[in-house]
Design a protein around this nucleic acid. Structure first.
Lengths: 125, 125
DNA sequence: TTCAAATATTGGAATACTCAAATATGTATC
DNA sequence: GATACATATTTGAGTATTCCAATATTTGAA
């Protein structure tokens, strides 16, 4: 019932970039696509995004888990889970120091957050 | 039960950037934070991310809805819902033309996708 | 070893999300 | 008008998320 897509390649758009008229495409491998989605969905949650922002705000020194629960406003267990998920997505790295663990934002995370800052800037000018 | 965060400001990290030792912070307003999360969670889904990639791949001409279902591999209704959600998140804009509708990626979306490309590049060198 | 602090993991109830199917709303052509 | 096509919206069943509470683990100090 959904084979009607080749039917109107003759539409009135002439400024198509180069190549076929209206066949959209993208150049991501399936793996890259899934990686991106995993990363984006990891940050696409208020608790995790705010946690990541705090971690990134702590710079190279990193943020220790214990200071985050009151800042983010969730339980210690929730923060720990959030950090684990961010770690798995490659957005933070972990460093042991005594009985504490310091989480630091990765380059990937910084790139992403910078892009988001850029977007926010553009939205009010 | 969770007031134990001020208790170890005397930890052994001396390379703190500037200012207080271990108090993490971030400078986002609550509104900006929610905006970002809305945007990120909109793209943090395989169907919507792939849809956005196809739309962005179609350039300024935009992609019409009818060509997307077979490309993304979901129903027409699902694509339509995906586009609505992307529209609400400010990632695509819509243009009517006859009985078709063309969706175009916004500047915000392009900035985000570019950042993701940068991140992917960095991951294999 | 015993204790306490820091962090991780698990269980589970409430909630939210996903997507196809069905239906509704436009829009051009006849 | 009527008809057919393009798109949007609604519905609902299945599934996944979210976050707290409770428990487990790890670690340093006594």
């Amino acid at each position: 019932m959904n084979s009607n897509s080749a039917e109107h390649t003759d539409r009135g758009i002439e400024d198509a970039p180069d190549g076929d008229c209206c066949t959209a495409s993208h150049s991501l491998t399936d793996e890259a696509l899934l990686d991106d989605v995993a990363m984006l969905s990891a940050v696409g949650n208020e608790t995790r995004y705010e946690t990541l922002r705090y971690v990134a705000g702590a710079g190279q020194a990193g943020a220790c888990v214990c200071e985050l629960p009151p800042l983010v406003g969730v339980t210690q267990g929730t923060v720990s889970n959030a950090l684990s998920r961010l770690l798995e997505a490659g957005l933070v790295s972990r460093r042991k120091e005594g009985r504490w663990r310091y989480y630091t934002a990765t380059t990937e995370a910084r790139t992403l957050l910078l892009a988001l800052d850029t977007i926010q800037e553009g939205s009010d000018e």
